[in-house]
C-alpha cells in the first residue's frame, strides 16, 4: 500500500492523515461549544490555608 514495504508503516502514514482529519472535523463540529470561564473558587490573591496532613 502506497509503495511501503510493510502494512504497519502504511497504516501509520494513513493514520497520521486520518488523525489530523479527526482533529479538523471535531474542531469544526464543536466550533461553538462554549463553556464560559467559571468564577474562581479562590479569589486571585487569596492566601490559601491548606491542611498538609497526608
Amino acid at each position: 500500500m502506497f509503495g511501503f514495504g510493510d502494512f504497519w508503516v502504511a497504516a501509520a502514514y494513513l493514520l497520521c492523515i486520518l488523525s489530523t482529519a479527526l482533529c479538523v472535523v471535531y474542531g469544526l463540529m464543536h466550533w461553538n461549544d462554549d463553556e464560559e470561564i467559571p468564577a474562581a473558587v479562590h479569589p486571585p490573591d487569596e492566601n490559601l490555608d491548606f491542611e498538609e496532613t497526608i
Binding site: 482533529c23 479538523v24 471535531y26 474542531g27 464543536h30 466550533w31 461553538n32 462554549d34 463553556e35 470561564i37
Partner: peptide, 11 residues
Amino acid sequence: KSSKELYRALI
C-alpha cells in the same frame, strides 16, 4: 477563555 477556543485550536 473557554472550551470552544480549545476545540477551534485543534484545527
